[in-house]
C-alpha cells in the first residue's frame, strides 16, 4: 500500500516557447502540506495544472493515489479538488449556482454546498450573481469550489491572493483543520511567511526545476525564516547558472 498521494518522476513539460518545467521529481505523502515557493514564472502553476490534467506532460511519470494520473483520470480526479490561478467563475450565475456546478459533479448536495459557502464567508451572498463580486469574494468562491467535494488532495495556487486579513487567517484555519482530518495539500504562494505557518514541507522552484526541498522543521532549525531559506537557494541557483 503506497502512502504517496502524488509521485512525480522526472516530469518534463515545455510549452511551445520552450519554457515550462524540467526534471521534476516530487513525492507528496498522505497528510502532507507541501508548499511550492518560487519566483514568477518558475513553474508552480505548471506543476499544479499538470496534476489536474489541464496540461499533458512531455515526459516522465505522474502517479496519484498509486494510479497513473492520465490513465485513471476519472478515478484520480474524484479525490482532487483544485483552485488554479484565478478561480473559474461564471459571471451570470449566482455564488451557489457556481458552486453547485462543482458540487454536483462530486456528489455533494446543496446543503453541503451552503455549508462551504458559509465556511468561506459568502453565505449572505449565496444568491447574488458572481459578476458583482470583488476579487477577494471570487477567490473565496473559488476556494469553496476546491473544497466542496471533500477531496483527499487539495491543490491551491496562491489561495490567499486578494484576500483580506480575516480571509488569510480563515484559509489558514481551514487548511489546518482539514489537514488534521488527513487531507493532503499542495499550496503555492509568494508569501513565505504564510507558507511557513501551514506547511510541513517546502519545495523551492527556480526556472522550471526544483532548486531545494526540505522539511519545514529542518528549515526552521537551520534558518531564521523560510524567506532566508528561499533566498539562499535561489541565489545559489542563480550563481550556478551564471
Amino acid at each position: 500500500m503506497a502512502t504517496e498521494t502524488v509521485r512525480m518522476d522526472a516530469v518534463k513539460k515545455l510549452y511551445k516557447n520552450k519554457r515550462g518545467i524540467r526534471n521534476i521529481t516530487l513525492d507528496v505523502n498522505k497528510g502532507d502540506v507541501l508548499g511550492l515557493l518560487g519566483p514568477n514564472g518558475s513553474g508552480k502553476t505548471t506543476i499544479m495544472k499538470l496534476l489536474c490534467g489541464l496540461i499533458k506532460k512531455d515526459a516522465g511519470e505522474v502517479k496519484m493515489f498509486g494510479l497513473d494520473a492520465e490513465e485513471s483520470f476519472e478515478r484520480v480526479m474524484r479525490k482532487v479538488g483544485s483552485l488554479i490561478e484565478a478561480p473559474a467563475i461564471y459571471k451570470k450565475l449566482s455564488a451557489i449556482d457556481n458552486l453547485m456546478l462543482t458540487a454536483r459533479m462530486r456528489g455533494a448536495d446543496e446543503k453541503r454546498a451552503m455549508q462551504y459557502l458559509e465556511r468561506v464567508g459568502l453565505l449572505q451572498y449565496a444568491n447574488e450573481r458572481a459578476e458583482r463580486f470583488s476579487l477577494g469574494m471570487k477567490q473565496r468562491l473559488g476556494l469553496s469550489m476546491a473544497l466542496v467535494g471533500e477531496p483527499e488532495l487539495v491543490i491551491l495556487d496562491e489561495p490567499v491572493n486578494g484576500l483580506d486579513i480575516e480571509g488569510v487567517v480563515g484559509v489558514r484555519e481551514i487548511i489546518e483543520e482539514l489537514n488534521k482530518k488527513g487531507t493532503t495539500f499542495i499550496i503555492s504562494s509568494h508569501i513565505a511567511s504564510e507558507l511557513e505557518k501551514v506547511c510541513n514541507r517546502v519545495a523551492v522552484l527556480y526556472d522550471g526545476e526544483i532548486a531545494a526541498e526540505n522539511e519545514m522543521s529542518d528549515i526552521e532549525r537551520r534558518y531564521p525564516s523560510l524567506e532566508e531559506y528561499f533566498l539562499e537557494n535561489i541565489r545559489k541557483r542563480r550563481g550556478a547558472l551564471l
Binding site: L54, R78, I84, A86, A88, I89, Y90, R106
Partner: peptide
C-alpha cells in the same frame, strides 16, 4: 477564453 474551461476539465470526467 474566460478560462472557466479549467473547472470543467478538472472534474472527474474525461
Amino acid at each position: 477564453q474566460e478560462d472557466t474551461i479549467k473547472s470543467v476539465l478538472s472534474q472527474p470526467v474525461t
